[in-house]
Amino acid sequence: MATIQVSEAEKVYIMHGVRDDSRVDGRGCEDYRHMEIETDVVSNTDGSAKVSLGQTDILVGIKAEIGRPRPMVPDEGYLEFFVDCSANATPEFEGRGGEELGVELSNNLYKVFNNRHSLDLRSLCIRPGENCWVLYVDVLLLQCDGNLFDAMSIAIKAALFNTRIPNVHISEDEEGGKEIELSDDPYDCMRLNVENVPCIVTLCKIGHRHVVDATLQEKSCSVASLLISVTHKGTVTCVRKLGGGSLDPDSIFEMTETGKRVGKMLHVPLMELLQKEENLGRERTKVGFLA
């Protein structure tokens, strides 16, 4: 975050610009910043992805472990989110300073992913009522320049696409106790279907118009923003309002329509890109931060 302080004159300038559909860096109101996505950057995990959206950098690592399923839904696995706002982003996150923001972000992620349609949780079940796969999704915030949710959701989708869960063989031994064996073959693994994983679009209301992908500067000019999670079919799975200001119902409706439109357009190129990266296979040189 590197603490942004915006003067009143700058705020007025930004608001006038948005009114005329031209933002500080030349984008339109519905344009995203330059985005770079790479998967499989951390080899200790079962799936990972790194996303840089302008100056915002997010790294997601997914680890799959075997655990007991939730008592209410014995035939499904589940996801656990943990957002770590590291001190890299701003010195204010040192020690326990980043915990508040991290907890807020992970709670929002729980809400977004909390329905049966985003991810097929049944496929994570091993033995109903006894064993299931628990996916620990760890989000690491490296640099923060606004629009954290969008970048996080894209990174989570890419990481889930990249996740390889080893296949499980259940064998019975003599006394009737069941043993679970994980296959050692790195290619014998299960992939997740991320078609329905939603992407989050955050819309900030600046003046009378709303913008997609606000930088920190623009965020300081807005009083309220709306968080919409959209699947590739255009279905809205979760809507949340953030910020202290108020939104009238008309603008909420408008913003939702914009969000649906933008979100739908986001999925197709993302899936294409992920498929292309996957097809490069082993010849792909892993760049990570070394670009």
């Binding site: 200790n44 995990t45 990972s48 943990f82 690491l140």
Partner: peptide, 21 residues
């Protein structure tokens, strides 16, 4: 000079619960 060392939760083979502290 103020330093903080932390590890990402996914950095080790077994998942770490607390990144620092």
């Amino acid at each position: 000079i103020n330093c903080q060392y932390s590890m990402a939760t996914f950095s080790t083979a077994e998942r770490k619960r607390r990144p620092h502290g």
